[in-house]
């Protein structure tokens, strides 16, 4: 297939097969844990833990992080996030796809690309708390359960991306 040209290592798995396997993973999570998948929740817990290390009193007194108590890492999604790192690493290693790089268009400066990655990260991190989940916890899990919020989040995510995509196209120009 044509969509492997930019990557070193083995070609990616067929997208429908990858999606099918991802769906089975989600189904296993429903049937065993009774919950769906999630990534931003674990990340937010990690953030709260970092905050506790620096400003323990302020974080414990804050309304949102404070509700997680003094050991926010004691939560299943933190372990799931650790698993994502591990599983991704094993797959990338076995398929020779690990290479240190800043992905961008060939003619785009790396520092600008990193600045956009940081900005996008701040926005996505904030928004995932507001929406109670990210692509995994809300779009994927919520839509598979056919919840109104999951479907609405998924549609709004693509709306938000497509509305502004034109203004950020240069970072991918070769």
């Amino acid at each position: 297939m044509s969509d492997i040209s930019h990557e070193k290592g083995n070609p990616y798995l067929n997208p429908y097969l990858a999606g099918f396997l991802l769906g089975l993973t989600l189904l296993a999570s429903f049937l065993i844990l009774g919950t769906g998948l999630g990534a931003s929740g674990g990340l937010a817990r990690l953030t709260a833990w970092c905050g506790l290390c620096i400003y323990p009193e302020q974080v414990l007194e804050s309304v949102y992080f404070g509700a997680w108590g003094d050991n926010p890492l004691n939560y299943y999604l933190v372990f799931m996030l650790a698993g994502i790192f591990l599983g991704g690493f094993v797959s990338a290693l076995l398929n020779h796809r690990i290479s240190v790089q800043t992905e961008r268009g060939a003619s785009y400066p790396a520092w600008k690309r990193l600045a956009l990655a940081l900005l996008g990260g701040v926005i996505a991190g904030f928004a995932s708390r507001l929406a109670r989940g990210c692509t995994s916890g809300m779009a994927l899990t919520g839509t598979a359960l056919l919840t109104t919020g999951g479907v609405a989040f998924l549609l709004a995510t693509f709306a938000g991306g497509y509305v502004f995509a034109y203004f950020f196209r240069r970072q991918w120009h070769d």
Partner: peptide
């Protein structure tokens, strides 16, 4: 997961912007 329609539409829209700008989502 509960539906909080306003928060999820607003949050989703902003999230999409962040996703598109960075090319990443948390997972």
């Amino acid at each position: 997961p509960e539906t909080v329609l306003g928060a999820q539409i607003l949050g989703g829209f902003i999230f999409g912007l962040g996703f598109m700008i960075s090319g990443w989502c948390p997972g």
